[in-house]
Design a protein around this nucleic acid. Sequence first.
DNA 1: ATAATAAAAGATAAATTTGTCTTTTATTTT
DNA 2: AAAATAAAAGACAAATTTATCTTTTATTAT
Lengths: 144, 144
Amino acid sequence: MFSKACEYAIRATIYIAVQSNQDNRVGLKDISKEIDSPEAFTAKILQQLSKNNIINSIKGPNGGFEIDKKDMSKINLSQIVMAIDGDTIYKGCGLGFKQCSEKQPCPVHDKFKVVRDELKHMLETTNVLELSVGLKKGLTFLHR
Amino acid sequence: MFSKACEYAIRATIYIAVQSNQDNRVGLKDISKEIDSPEAFTAKILQQLSKNNIINSIKGPNGGFEIDKKDMSKINLSQIVMAIDGDTIYKGCGLGFKQCSEKQPCPVHDKFKVVRDELKHMLETTNVLELSVGLKKGLTFLHR
DNA sequence: ATAATAAAAGATAAATTTGTCTTTTATTTT
DNA sequence: AAAATAAAAGACAAATTTATCTTTTATTAT
Ligand code: FES
Ligand code: FES
């Protein structure tokens, strides 16, 4: 569904959100340990998220990553997916045509579109704050 | 969403269905040209489909691939996806855990499950015969 | 200013997926 | 039986994704 990079991105963002909510800035090492991801690869992904203004990065001692509390409810999964995987999940065709199209649809177009649109809606209406709540409560997990 | 191999598999199956409905057995060259896929790679995929009893393959002169007319309405997209990509799309976790689990769910589990289940339902209730109808009528396309 | 810290950037490397080429096997026609 | 046809099988190669390692830059504390 999503690339590995995107999966790590979502996990990392949720973890940073939980910590930022408690005014804890977190470093790369911390993050990759907590979400069980390769450290250097995670660094690249965090850079992308930072460039896309999804997280803030601070260099130097006591540096790390954080998310503004006021932004958390405005960051949704769609923004993260777009930042890492681009819009292929929205514009791509279920059978692999470069672009999905109503004019020249593939055989599964009508049925695929329904699912894709629901996925899109889910990603757009799920924000990082709500996801962080379940995690903080211990109801959900970032690793096993 | 699906692997390239799986996309080719679905396209090929639909094309073979259309032709089989008109009692035309079709060869690899024909298929890969029609669905615009790499020939040798397509051959591997057709082998998989044949091993999984989704299509029949016949060797030798006037050989090729075909689907029993009576089976067409019983072959659904789910079977094709399972044959090529396995069950990751059903059992996999949206955030990359090996197995999705109710006991130890990831933060997006509840929301992801809804979409995944709808995808599953769509794949299970869409059969090859109905997809081949739109194609034969010229309403849908296997290439652009 | 200097040293220490932590992320950014860039260069490689491993793994996986996608794609190709050659040889073999099965089947049919002559 | 021999030749021709077409898929199966196996080995190989390219491309992409995932992952690692090293050097540089920015920031802070001493
Ligand atoms: S054209 Fe294939 S999904 Fe729209
Ligand atoms: S545990 Fe992640 S989707 Fe179920």
